[in-house]
Design a protein around this nucleic acid. Sequence first.
DNA 1: GTCCGTAGGCGTACGTCATACGCCTACGGA
DNA 2: TCCGTAGGCGTATGACGTACGCCTACGGAC
Lengths: 218, 218
Amino acid sequence: MPRPRSFSETDIAAAALAVIDHDGLAALSMRAVAVRLGLGTMSLYRYVSDREQLEGLVVDLVLSAVDTTPPPDLPWNEQLTVLVERARDAVAAHPQVVPLTLTHRHTSASVLRWAEAVLGVLTAAGFTGDRRAVALRCLLGHLIGSIQMDHLGPLSGAGTEAMARLSPEAHPLLAETAHGAREIGAGDEFRGGLHILLLGLRASLDEAAEAGPEVTNR
Amino acid sequence: MPRPRSFSETDIAAAALAVIDHDGLAALSMRAVAVRLGLGTMSLYRYVSDREQLEGLVVDLVLSAVDTTPPPDLPWNEQLTVLVERARDAVAAHPQVVPLTLTHRHTSASVLRWAEAVLGVLTAAGFTGDRRAVALRCLLGHLIGSIQMDHLGPLSGAGTEAMARLSPEAHPLLAETAHGAREIGAGDEFRGGLHILLLGLRASLDEAAEAGPEVTNR
DNA sequence: GTCCGTAGGCGTACGTCATACGCCTACGGA
DNA sequence: TCCGTAGGCGTATGACGTACGCCTACGGAC
């Protein structure tokens, strides 16, 4: 084994993440990452076969930070709240990475770990079969949707501006809502939505019990 | 007024959409769109100041197709279901445009129209203030999340493959869920999730009523 | 201590992209 | 008939991802 590798995959990912955090997602390029590692552009290809794979490493680094052990001694809905919020926080720590997270989500082992943990809580709560799959999908959907809305919607400014400009009479309710929404933080909206979702999940569980145990697996 | 314009904004958007639908999102370039219009590359800039703006036109064209008049003579939750599903269907008709939809969502007048309609139904149902804002956000979040999951998750193949490969013993619940989920369609999952969400919204309304009318505006 | 094959490092080059700039020219009102 | 406006486009620039092929540093075998 001649010439040991100078960098680990984590080193590469950290360098790319540093580029993104420092100069924005648009500045992420093979050249920029190579420079940050003190490497020639093409040397980076000794570690990564592709820009695609580089992006995957970044996403995995960001998502590896989420703790997927469910908090004990809590009812299932609060356990789910904690798990979902942890995932949200991990992504929120690197706003610029959001678009990459959405694209590379399915290739990351960290996401699978998280999903497994959520499924564990759901199972313990009594969810099975398709109902459990839908519940997971629902939670993940809310998570992804919220991340999207927080970091590509109002944050980019264009959204709020466009809304404020077009709204006056054509969209009275929207204008009122947008105005009121300025008071309420993105985090509160996220938690409020999650609360509603969990109310729905509980109701869904009741529906299943009511229909009789023999069709619980629907 | 010398030299009338040869193309409308809709013509431009339609050309770009044609490129995307025919050759994929990656094939979308100023050159390709110009060629499809029988124009030189730089002439396109007479109509659009930017690639950004071009993408915005495409999104607005796709989203302009959704009918935002709530179906009458239905309970509010079914009205919401219809509105959300219409939006989903419009986007699903052009799978390749999904990433653009997510990025340019907030600049599209069609989205504002849709949001206004949803807010109308929510208001009639008794939602007000922050609770209404959260409800809207929740529905939009579910919509966006589902669109993401449908068209970047399993569809891309890599997701399901990676899951099937890594799952065996490390992620037993996930493996079971993924296996079972193959039977259930994306549409069913979307509707199932929406159903859960609406159960949650109803419960949230009950919560508000229970807390007393004087705090309804929370 | 010497040698050698492996694998790291990189310089160059290519094709594609968005787009700034400035030139021609078709047109419609005067 | 003429002219100014605005459409159309050729050229050029700089950034990007990455294919290719060359040097060279290293660590085990002898």
